[in-house]
Amino acid sequence: MMVTTHAFVGLALASAVAVAAPDLAVPAAVGGAAGGLFPDLDIVGKHRKTLHFPVYYSLAAVPAVAVAVAAPGPATVAGALFLVAAAVHSVSDAGGGGLELKPWEGTSERAVYVHATGTWVRPRHWIRYDGSPEDFVLGAVVAVPALVVFDGPIRSAVVAALVASLAYTVVRKRIVEYAPEWMK
């Protein structure tokens, strides 16, 4: 899935917190969006392996959420949402395509690495590939809570990310035609 889709999921989680505790809306949004984005920073390394931790983020999220519920504050809420969003990101990548340059061809058996078992989870292709039309639709739907709950810079960032997501969706398959030779 697109990194924006993952960020929108983190913001959807943050929207629930913002409704319940408006004074924690901004830390929730920052933590949720950052956690949704963070695993994909490994695009420059071993993608879906270096920073994708489906088991470890999930395990770390449980006590972090408990602490945020027991002692709600900007740091605890942001930290809990970061870990939950990073866990959801890492787990949900298995629902998409594989790691090949043209994931719509479905030739890869590697979706996300599970460090705890030392194995790769195979792609499920529920979202055929990052930037597919269904990826854009999912991202747009998941962005709705953030568009409704937040205003100002957060809403503006969501709108800008939706526009960028649509542009990426339009050109996604063509990108590989213009990719540098070393990517092919």
Rank of each mutant, 00 (worst) to 15 (best):
A68Y: 05
R124Y: 15
M1W: 14
G96E: 08
V159L: 15
V19R: 00
R174A: 14
H47W: 04
S90E: 08
T4L: 10
W182L: 06
A29L: 11
V163Q: 06
W120H: 10
T107E: 08
A157V: 08
G96S: 14
W126F: 12
A60V: 05
A66Y: 04
G106V: 09
R172M: 08
A80C: 12
A20R: 00
D42P: 04
L51I: 02
V142G: 07
L83Q: 04
L11V: 02
A33T: 10
G73P: 03
A28H: 09
A64G: 05
V158M: 05
V26A: 05
P103L: 05
V141P: 14
V88H: 02
D151R: 00
A85P: 02
K102Y: 13
S132W: 12
R124I: 14
L99G: 12
R172V: 12
A29R: 00
H52V: 01
V84C: 03
A25S: 09
T169D: 11
A146R: 01
G79M: 13
L162S: 06
A78E: 01
A85T: 02
L59C: 14
P133Y: 13
A78V: 07
S165F: 06
A60L: 12
D42N: 08
A111K: 02
P74F: 11
L162C: 11
G139E: 06
S165P: 03
V69W: 13
A146T: 03
A146V: 08
V176K: 00
W104Y: 09
A86W: 09
A28M: 08
D23R: 15
K49H: 06
M2E: 01
G45C: 03
V19K: 00
V176L: 06
T169L: 13
T50L: 00
H89R: 10
A86G: 13
V26D: 00
A64S: 05
G96N: 10
A140M: 15
A33K: 02
H125D: 09
D93N: 13
A80D: 10
T5E: 06
Y168R: 09
F38L: 05
F8R: 02
A167C: 07
V142T: 05
K102H: 11
P27T: 10
A34H: 06
A140G: 15
A167D: 05
A7K: 06
T5F: 12
H125K: 08
A164R: 05
D42I: 00
V148M: 04
A146C: 11
R155D: 14
A14G: 00
G35L: 03
A146E: 04
V17M: 03
P72N: 10
L24M: 09
